[in-house]
Design a protein around this nucleic acid. Structure first.
Lengths: 208, 208, 208, 208
DNA sequence: TATGAATGAGTATTCATTCAT
DNA sequence: CATGAATGAATACTCATTCAT
């Protein structure tokens, strides 16, 4: 009869379990992580975990969505302070550069395993498209604003450009998944920024 | 009793097994493919298979190497007929575009599974670096030739540019792993070519 | 604070729980019905349920007894209005015939599951004998009355006849557990009545 | 390349596993018997068992069919030596009587668990009807022969009578599942024979 | 009394690899 | 060399029951 307290408690516990499970997944991968790993890590019982999530797969899905929403939310709010499209992009590349490589690798592995997993399950593909389109739209909107501003070329296919943006970024992370130095990675991100801007900007002379 | 014949026979059988296994891996993925799947597909016995390969993992590794060597070899010989760096790149993008999406997806899934697999096994990372560096060097050499030619900008970090080249390409494939139309994919490859060339070429005005 | 009220309340709640649990058991079977199913069906909490019954098994047992007592009670009172043994039997067969097959099946499954369950637990067997003997005695008494009346043959082993009566009845239900039409079932019950009467009656010529 | 030897070996092993599993099922029941119980009992590995049967359920089904076929086969061949329908029935009742109660109980429990199990799985019901109809037809044919012979009444619904026959038999076994003495059981079987014959025979005077 | 979160033992099935024939 | 029967470790999920609030 006290839904408020219980509800809040459940929500917190739920989040705690998700966080603990994420640590496990990132450390060992989705498939390699067993339910026993997770409950041991969290210090709870199997039954407790299953009281909050119906399956391992479900935990995985909710986690991926949460991560994307967090990223989009954080960027959206930050972008409000940056009126110029080029500045927004620059901010983004700065975030890419400042993320430690070790962390990027784990995220990338997590993300890839999700995609691989989804690619064998037709019912997850639709859900994944929604997931990924949030990121595409974010950049698409950014580039459209840049075009309106007069910062970027008017003849751009903005959606395609958004795809390319994420492609270089994800492709680069992919190549650093298994090796490469922090230093080299930063260099590549810088060059990537140059390449992307040269592609978007009206006057190539303006490039870095 | 002549060792040559036996040796040749073994080699052919070995290649046949690898080819059959590859078909299975591409169809179902590495983990999902069982040894039983492979021997059933090939019409041989488990014992026979293990007479040629010590483990499933080993088959996987040899296959990945073979694939890369084939690609590099095929491109290297094709490049001899194309003196201009820009033409070589154009040829490459043409290959990207003409590959059916369904096939690309399978290759990408195969490739990703390999990387994910390697990322959890430190002993495989070194081997993967060699594997990947073959592709990097191919493009690095191509770009260096372009710089020497005077086709490309002299201030390029050619290795970095090579990384970016493969990054956009692989990143794009990654985004199309789970969905997207053939048409849209081709459009993105075309835009990708524009972006890369705009980055490499001296006179952006020269771009498509 | 008056114990009477509390006691009465407990008794009613207890009966309500038993009734709700019965519905679940009949619908899904004893083993397949979970405590969660029952409390969900009743809209109460697990703790509440365990405040009234020490275990799932206990609920099961009490339920079976109640059912048998109800049946015997109902028949006993009905029999008072039927002086002739043959009429009493005819009434019984009428009840068998008029019970919808779908309902009979559920009862039969319930009954069988109880027996199977008991057959693996020696401590329940004694209890089951009491349970079953109530039904046997009911018919035994009926037949003895018929013999005294002069309706039935004097050389009958009445207890054995009572066993046979229930055997045909339960065996028939058993055969219809998994299939068969309502129509066919009624036919069999009619023939069953003919067979039983032909066995009990002095003058076979008197049969239907 | 030696299918004969292998085939025979597989068949024997298959039968041995079935026999061992049956012992376990009869001892503990289908659901209560774990795969570990069975392999421990047989002294083989789990993998070996699953090389012969795809699932526990499948073993169960094959076993039930084999048992029925064996019974029908054995009776059919025995009946060839008994021209009179009444003798055939008498032989059957003799078999019922001579079967030790302890064994009957186990068979009955096994049989009941099968039915209960099937009653919750629509896809098994059809299969069960075929299973049971073999027994019904055996007796139906027997009774029809008796009618033609002039031994039995001409106005019988022979199929219905066949149902009644098995009903008394199975119902009796059901009542002795949980208790009762060997002696009492034999008495009931004898009375059952009397009841059934009195029902079938033209001249009741001819009974016992 | 009522609640419902937590417990944790229990189980069918898969599959890479071996090895006797 | 080839065969394929055998091995056995590994793993997600269920549910009757308890007990702190």
């Amino acid at each position: 009869m006290s839904p408020k307290v219980t509800e809040r408690y459940r929500e917190e516990k739920r989040a705690a379990i998700l966080a603990g499970a994420l640590e496990c997944f990132i450390e060992k991968g989705f498939q390699a992580t067993t339910i026993d790993d997770i409950v041991r890590h969290l210090g709870i019982s199997k039954g407790a975990l299953y009281g909050y999530f119906p399956s391992k797969e479900d935990m995985y899905l909710q986690m991926a969505h949460k991560r994307m929403d967090d990223m989009v939310g954080s960027l959206t709010s930050r972008f409000k302070e940056l009126p110029l499209a080029a500045d927004r992009l620059h901010y983004l590349f700065g975030r890419f550069q400042s993320q430690p490589l070790s962390e990027l690798r784990k995220w990338m592995a997590f993300h890839m395993e999700f995609m691989l997993y989804a690619s064998r399950r037709p019912e997850l593909i639709e859900m994944h498209q929604q997931y990924i389109s949030k990121a595409i739209q974010l950049i698409d909107t950014l580039i459209q604003a840049g075009v309106k501003n007069g910062e970027f070329r008017a003849d751009l296919d903005t959606e395609s450009a958004s795809y390319l943006f994420w492609s270089v970024r994800d492709g680069l992370a992919l190549h650093f998944l298994l090796g490469g130095t922090e230093e080299r990675y930063k260099q590549h991100v810088a060059d990537m920024e140059a390449m992307v801007l040269r592609y978007l900007l009206k006057t190539p002379a303006a490039e870095i």
